[in-house]
Amino acid sequence: MTMENLKYRFDGGKPTPGVAAIVGVLGSGNLEVMVEPAALGGACEIEVSTAARGFGAIWQAVMGDFFARHRAGDIRILVNDAGATPAIVSLRLDQAIETYTAKGQMPKQMPKKEK
């Protein structure tokens, strides 16, 4: 496994206060996302560390969509990825920003059936 590190910056977001939060797990086909406040003049900085090389253009598109959805600024997002699909990445990013703006509290758990 060789890692790839990618960096993105989106300017012109609205300052988004919150409490640093982590969602997801760094496991096969999954990713973990941390969002923390950062004084970036309204920008959103994203750093991705991924086990799957060569998908920079897709990451760019997924991150661009995320920023277009939320326009969240003054935040730094760190991503550790173990080969998640773009749809999973989008959902995790939404979950991360939701958790961050809810002041770090876990969102309500998804209904789970008893084993």
Binding site: M1, T2, M3, A20, I22, V25, L26, E32, M34, E36, S49, T50, A51, L78, N80, D81, A82
Partner: peptide, 22 residues
Amino acid sequence: LFAEDRVTSPHLAILEQPAAFD
């Protein structure tokens, strides 16, 4: 030692493996 503290494995990066925040 929440992720903001950046206390992660010093060994995994050398092996080119992603290190979890916690």
